[in-house]
């Protein structure tokens, strides 16, 4: 175990969340094409930071830093880490960040076609959630021998279903953001209610069955709180983009705040959901399997 590697992974993960916000600001302020060339910016490494260039070029700078840090992480893990899955996770992270950078460049050169922008937005959040798992894999908790026994639980199923719906919400949200197709708001709203129900189910389950296990209660409460906050930000975004749209002049501060906040909190929800899932699978790897051993799912023909 390497304490510096662990810290470094955490810092990289935190900075990546900052990059998600910075990328969101580019779209919210309508600055995605303020720098028409890529990979250089107006033929330079450092153009004047005025108007929309402030957002677009800051995003490029932070992204370069994250790309470089991910490269370093991959080398570091390749050098110090024995676990194969960790090595593959880091190579996966590097592949994602390189692809993401090229994708970002393509959105500029092809003038923001919606499918590319949606893909760029979704991959950003996927990369962030991926790093969260990577950082968790580096943690003391993961590398300890400790396990907890919770018995047969539905928690894993809840979490995996929640992950699926949160991810679908991310894709839908990105599609609404980049196509302005308001019809998509209907499935997005339905998805939001399903995610809310699942967050409540997860919270109730954890509080009822594992109330003494703060490693599960805290993330479950956190996830629930994020979902509530997300509903409020979603309503704000709806009000400022659909009810009172302001298309021509620079976007209002409230619009930028709600829309960027909604998108960034979405990334955090995805990460929180992935983290709690990883933790449950790590701490109680056998839950669920016991079902096969003890009960309903016994292979037919067995005594």
């Amino acid at each position: 175990m390497n304490i510096w590697l662990r810290r470094y992974t955490k810092i990289l993960t935190g900075l990546t969340f900052g990059l998600v916000i910075a990328g969101g600001l580019v779209t919210s302020t309508g600055s995605g094409l303020a720098v028409p060339d890529w990979p250089l910016s107006y033929g330079q490494l450092m153009p004047p930071m005025v108007g929309g260039i402030r957002f677009e070029h800051s995003h490029r700078l932070i992204a370069s830093l994250i790309g470089f840090m991910t490269l370093l992480l991959t080398f570091w893990i390749g050098w110090r880490e024995k676990r194969r899955w960790m090595r593959w996770m880091s190579i996966g992270a590097l592949g994602m960040v390189v692809f993401q950078g090229i994708l970002g460049g393509m959105t500029v050169l092809f003038l923001l076609p919606a499918p590319l922008s949606i893909f760029h937005g979704c991959l950003a959040q996927t990369f962030f959630a991926w790093l969260v798992v990577l950082a968790y894999g580096q943690s003391k908790e993961w590398q300890s021998k400790e396990m907890i026994r919770t018995g047969v639980t539905a928690l894993k199923q809840f979490l995996l279903i929640a992950f699926g719906f949160v991810y679908a919400q991310l894709v839908l949200g990105a599609a609404i953001r980049h196509t302005h197709n308001h019809l998509l708001l209907i499935p997005h709203l339905i998805g939001a209610l399903i995610v809310l129900v699942l967050a409540i189910a997860i919270l109730v389950h954890v509080l009822r069955h594992h109330s003494a296990e703060s490693r599960l209660t805290k993330p479950a409460i956190f996830l629930f709180a994020l979902v509530i906050a997300q509903l409020l930000l979603g309503m704000g975004s709806f009000v400022y983009t659909v009810v009172f749209p302001k298309s021509d002049l620079p976007a209002s501060l409230s619009q930028v705040f709600f829309v960027t906040g909604h998108q960034s909190l979405g990334a955090l929800i995805l990460a929180a959901c992935v983290f709690l899932t990883a933790r449950v699978f790590r701490l109680d790897p056998h839950a669920g399997h016991e079902k096969i051993a003890t009960g309903l799912l016994r292979p037919s023909g067995a005594p």
């Binding site: 303020a34 720098v35 028409p36 060339d37 107006y42 033929g43 153009p47 004047p48 005025v50 003038l111």
Partner: peptide
Amino acid sequence: NTLHNVHSLAEKSKQFNLGMP
């Protein structure tokens, strides 16, 4: 004495986005 990008949102002709620094 500042830079602009001139960005055409044409739907029937090819769009363009050009830096004029």
